[in-house]
């Protein structure tokens, strides 16, 4: 649950710290995945930190976000704890989802984080629903959907925008245009050069900003939030950004050139913001470096915690399917044979 005033110097430092936290988290996650420590898939947010942090900084703590398969950054930006996130990546019991979600499904509904999501384009309808809920209860809350350029081709995204626009819901649709939908360049997936022109079809404001500049994202979301809270309906924002890593870890990336990656890396949202703060006299170079070291230490500690955390008990696989107890689960769980040859003892069958 985070809200940062980037107009103040303290807010600027905190925004920088949070971007660094994401970078360090994902650098570490990438390494741990490569080392075989973390199972499954991981999709890293490196390069896009300015979008997540800029957007969440402009939201209020009670606001909702929906996320994507590339969700670590959104989680940290919304104020989730790296320690419990890392534990989730490891599939440990103390993870945000008790080890049932993993990298692609981290959620903390109480913090307004309605889940990373493995389905491209599934978040916007959920955000529309959260905005509907807030509107019906007359709560001072908005819902922001992060989604990628690839998702703009999904039908349900358009349905969600149409609903939110038609009902003037307090929603914000934020496209992170990182230039590739998996391994296919954005121009091969869309007839629009500016994805923000999508908004015109729904008679809502749509515009494109530099997603590598956290201040642009912050300002845009702040304005969109104000519009939403005034009952004027949703806004569509396209943030131009770039993922510095592959679609997933291990992606050989035959679809792009080193030159392009370097060009975008030269606009790194963290380095560029840090140097602006140094230029403006808000921080010294030494302070930036010690902040980075502090953040790296925090993430290293989170990883260590996660490595040593408890595995879930195998019987927990049968928990959380339903709010109530369903006889089938007890009945069928009793038939499962453990890797160690044992069988669950908590059944009555």
């Amino acid at each position: 649950m985070v809200s940062i005033d980037i107009e103040t110097e303290d807010g600027q430092k905190e925004a920088l710290r949070r971007m660094m936290l994401i970078r360090s988290f994902d650098d570490t996650a990438g390494t741990l995945f490569a080392d075989g420590e973390i199972p499954g898939f991981v999709h890293l947010y490196i390069g896009e930190e300015g979008v997540g942090v800029g957007a969440c900084a402009a939201l209020e703590p009670d606001d909702y976000i929906t996320s994507t398969h590339r969700g670590h950054g959104h989680c940290i930006a919304k104020g989730l704890e790296p320690q419990s996130m890392m534990a989730e990546l490891y599939g440990k019991r103390d993870g945000y989802c008790n080890g049932k979600g993993g990298s692609m499904h981290i959620a903390d509904v109480d913090a307004g984080m309605l889940g990373a999501n493995g389905i491209v384009g599934a978040g916007p309808p959920l955000a529309t629903g959260a905005a509907l809920s807030a509107a019906q209860k007359d709560e001072d809350r908005v819902a922001l959907a992060f989604f990628g350029d690839g998702a703009v081709a999904q039908g349900q995204v358009h349905e969600a925008i149409n609903l939110a626009a038609t009902w003037d819901l307090p929603a914000i649709f934020l496209v992170e245009n990182n230039q590739f939908g998996e391994g296919t360049p954005v121009e091969k997936q869309h007839n629009l050069e500016n994805l923000s022109e999508t908004a015109e079809a729904y008679d809502i404001p749509g515009f494109t900003i530099d997603g590598m500049d956290i201040t642009a994202v912050y300002e845009a979301v702040q304005e969109a939030r104000e519009r939403a809270r005034n009952g004027d309906g949703p806004t569509f924002i396209e943030a131009d950004t770039y993922r510095f890593r592959g679609h997933f870890e291990g992606d050989q990336q035959p679809y792009r050139e080193d030159d392009d990656i370097q060009e975008w890396q030269s606009r790194c949202p963290i380095d560029s913001f840090a140097s602006r703060l140094v230029d403006a006299g808000v921080m010294t170079d030494d302070e930036v470096e010690s902040l980075r070291a502090e953040v790296d230490e925090e993430i290293a500690a989170a990883a260590e915690y996660a490595q040593n955390a408890d595995e879930p008990d195998p019987t927990e696989a049968y928990d959380d399917m339903y709010a109530v107890s369903v006889p089938e689960l007890t009945m069928f769980a009793g038939r499962s044979v453990r890797a160690d040859g044992g069988s669950p003892t908590n059944t009555d069958q």
């Binding site: 022109e197 404001p205 749509g206 515009f207 494109t208 304005e223 806004t235």
Partner: peptide
């Protein structure tokens, strides 16, 4: 192609 797509559509 980039002209006319800034935030003043909102503000």
């Amino acid at each position: 192609p980039a002209a006319g797509r800034d935030i003043r559509r909102l503000t």
